[in-house]
């Protein structure tokens, strides 16, 4: 008898959970509908200038048209490719720099002021110099996507290396482990959660770098479409590009989140 009532409580708890989930989902959906609806109505009744702010129906029309003739797909591919590569290079580069800093206390002391300056510097301001140095093309844009996250990653990861409990190293040193063995067996694996948490931040940063890079040089990509739409006063195109960026940035974020969950599960 008692067993049964325990079970009932559990069922009731689960029901409450799923109810709460439904309510949240309903709210989220309502906000979206309300926003799009208001935008459409405001545009139709000229509360806002449709030439400047377009309208959801026009944007959807444009997207359908561009998707069916396939012209927008290359732009999306181009930007995605740059962002993913920028993210990977920036993150990997940051981890490598952090490792170098950890490997020599003196090197890290010497580099300290330079890292502070490079971290404080707004990286997108380096855009013109990067373009002059690397040419107005793909390489420059990917560099922008990478450079924006590399310094902050190295600083975050380096400080995580230093926060690892020194007693793990003590255990290894009592076995006569070398510094490199300490890194491989203790420092790096202990820091994996911190490294993974930089992934999410870096995805967002890489989008910033790549879009700014495309603003500056590109003849292709979503950032280029925004600038192009702006120049020819086609704000439906600007908005459509923004919608695509929002969708793909969210997808990438979710994918990184999945990778993160997988890595945490398999590295511990």
């Amino acid at each position: 008898m008692k067993q049964k009532s325990d079970h009932h409580l559990f069922v009731a708890y689960k029901r409450q959970l799923s109810h709460e989930k439904k309510v949240v989902l309903l709210w989220q959906f309502s906000i979206l509908i309300l926003f799009i609806g208001l935008w459409e109505i405001a545009s139709r009744f000229y509360w806002i200038d449709p030439l400047l702010f377009s309208s959801p129906s026009r944007i959807i029309q444009l997207l359908i048209q561009k998707l069916t003739d396939g012209s927008i797909i290359t732009h999306v591919e181009f930007t995605l490719f740059e962002t993913i590569l920028g993210f990977i290079i920036g993150t990997a580069g940051g981890i490598i720099i952090a490792t170098l800093l950890w490997s020599s206390r003196r090197f890290s002391n010497v580099m300290d002021p330079y890292l502070v300056i490079m971290n404080a510097m707004p990286k997108v301001a380096l855009g013109p110099i990067i373009i002059v140095a690397l040419g107005p093309g793909l390489v420059s844009i990917i560099t922008m996507g990478a450079i924006i996250s590399v310094i902050i990653t190295s600083l975050v990861v380096y400080s995580a290396f230093n926060e690892v409990d020194p007693n793990y190293e003590k255990v290894l040193k009592s076995f006569g482990a070398s510094r490199w063995q300490c890194f491989k067996e203790a420092i790096f694996p202990a820091t994996i959660p911190a490294i993974i948490s930089t992934f999410k931040v870096n995805v967002g940063l890489s989008w910033v770098g790549v879009i700014v890079g495309e603003f500056l040089v590109s003849k292709q990509g979503l950032g280029y479409l925004i600038i192009y739409g702006f120049q020819v006063f086609d704000f439906s195109l600007v908005m459509a590009s923004l919608v695509l960026i929002a969708i793909f940035a969210a997808i990438m974020y979710k994918v990184v989140e999945k990778i993160e969950a997988w890595l945490i599960k398999h590295s511990t």
């Binding site: 003590k170 255990v171 076995f175 694996p189």
Partner: peptide, 29 residues
């Protein structure tokens, strides 16, 4: 000469299984 050092806390490596923790010394040696 190998030295066996036990600390206040166990400092087993949480990401390794018990067996792999035990085999840490042999791995280093």
């Amino acid at each position: 000469i190998p030295i066996g050092y036990m600390l206040q806390q166990d400092y087993l490596f949480p990401w390794k299984t018990i067996l792999n923790n035990v085999l840490l010394g042999p791995k280093i040696y």
